[in-house]
Amino acid sequence: MALSANEVWGAISAATNMYPAAMPNLIARIRMTSRDGVTAGSVREITFGTGT
């Protein structure tokens, strides 16, 4: 199954909100620490939950 770059980036962007909601015991939160989350060089900080 081949995916376009836009499809892959869309999945990564959606994960910022989806993963903490779906797995709060594994991922407590994901937040942007640098830039806007869209442009190159954006950095996400992942805080792992108590279940890890």
Rank of each mutant, 00 (worst) to 15 (best):
A21Y: 01
I30D: 08
A15I: 09
G49W: 07
T33G: 09
P20F: 01
A5C: 07
A11Q: 11
M1W: 04
S4T: 09
P20W: 02
V43I: 08
A22I: 03
V8I: 15
G41K: 03
A5T: 15
A11W: 01
D36R: 13
Y19C: 02
N25T: 06
D36W: 08
M1K: 09
E45D: 12
I27V: 11
T47Q: 14
V43A: 06
I27N: 10
M23T: 02
R31D: 03
E45Q: 15
V38K: 12
I46G: 06
L26T: 02
T52S: 08
P24S: 00
G51S: 10
E7M: 15
S4W: 08
A2V: 07
P20M: 06
D36F: 07
V43Q: 09
G51T: 00
S34W: 11
R35W: 00
W9A: 15
I27T: 06
T50R: 12
N25R: 04
D36L: 04
A15H: 02
T47Y: 11
G41T: 10
G41I: 04
A2K: 07
A40M: 07
L26F: 06
I30A: 02
A40D: 14
A14K: 15
G51N: 12
T16A: 12
T16M: 07
T50A: 08
T33A: 00
A2M: 03
T33V: 10
Y19G: 00
L3H: 14
T39S: 13
P20I: 04
S34A: 03
L3K: 11
A15W: 04
G37H: 02
I27W: 04
M23F: 14
M18K: 11
A21C: 04
E45I: 05
P24Y: 02
A40N: 02
L26R: 01
R29C: 01
E7I: 06
A14L: 12
A2H: 12
A2N: 14
A14E: 15
S4V: 02
S34I: 03
G10W: 07
A14Q: 14
D36G: 04
V43T: 12
T50S: 07
A14W: 08
I27G: 05
G41F: 12
G51V: 13
N25Y: 04
P20D: 14
N6F: 02
E45G: 03
T47W: 09
M18G: 08
V8M: 15
T39D: 12
T47R: 12
G37P: 00
I30W: 04
W9E: 10
V8N: 15
V38D: 09
T47N: 14
A28Q: 09
S42L: 12
T33D: 09
G41W: 06
G41R: 03
A21K: 12
N25C: 05
I27P: 02
Y19F: 08
M18R: 10
N17V: 09
N17L: 13
E7H: 12
L26W: 01
G37D: 13
P24T: 00
Y19T: 11
R31H: 05
I46E: 14
R44I: 01
G41Y: 03
M1P: 00
T16W: 10
T39A: 09
R44D: 03
N6W: 11
S42Q: 01
S34D: 09
I46Q: 05
S42E: 00
